[in-house]
């Protein structure tokens, strides 16, 4: 079982809803994101979803969730930055983190270092799950 499943089972067992905030890496900067992860964890977040900004959502003519991220985070934050941010925050707080990324940045790392190495890298940051 993953930490995500464990968390939901525990929530169900205790009969309460979960607090699962979503934040965007690099909004407004990575230092703040790291602080937010730590503070949200300390404030009782059951799981934290961390979004990785995407420069170009599915076509510039479309309004989309990703476009919202894009508008707020034009500061060049990458997937690697997000992973580093998670690893640093995890030194201070233990809360399951879901990495919310467009697929291609994950694929780009896979192409570079290999799939197994990528999984190990995610594990090393203690990221519970990528989406």
């Amino acid at each position: 079982m993953s930490r995500i499943s464990d968390t939901f089972l525990a929530l169900k067992g205790s009969g309460r809803g979960g607090f699962i905030p979503f934040i965007t890496a690099g909004d407004p900067d990575l230092a703040t994101t790291e602080l937010l992860i730590i503070e949200l964890g300390a404030a009782g977040a059951d799981i934290i979803e961390l979004g990785v900004p995407i420069q170009r959502p599915g076509g510039r003519r479309r309004e989309s969730f990703s476009a919202h991220l894009n508008a707020r985070c034009g500061n060049g934050v990458t997937l690697r930055d997000a992973l580093t941010c998670i690893a640093r925050a995890k030194q201070q707080i233990d809360v399951p983190i879901i990495l919310f990324s467009y697929f291609n940045p994950l694929f780009a790392i896979w192409r570079e270092i290999g799939w197994q190495a990528k999984l190990r890298r995610l594990e090393s940051t203690q990221c519970s799950s990528p989406i």
Binding site: Q55, T78, L79, N104, F107, A108
Partner: peptide, 9 residues
């Protein structure tokens, strides 16, 4: 795309 896999405009 750029080196980090961000899709280019």
């Amino acid at each position: 795309q750029d080196e980090s896999g961000q899709i280019a405009t």
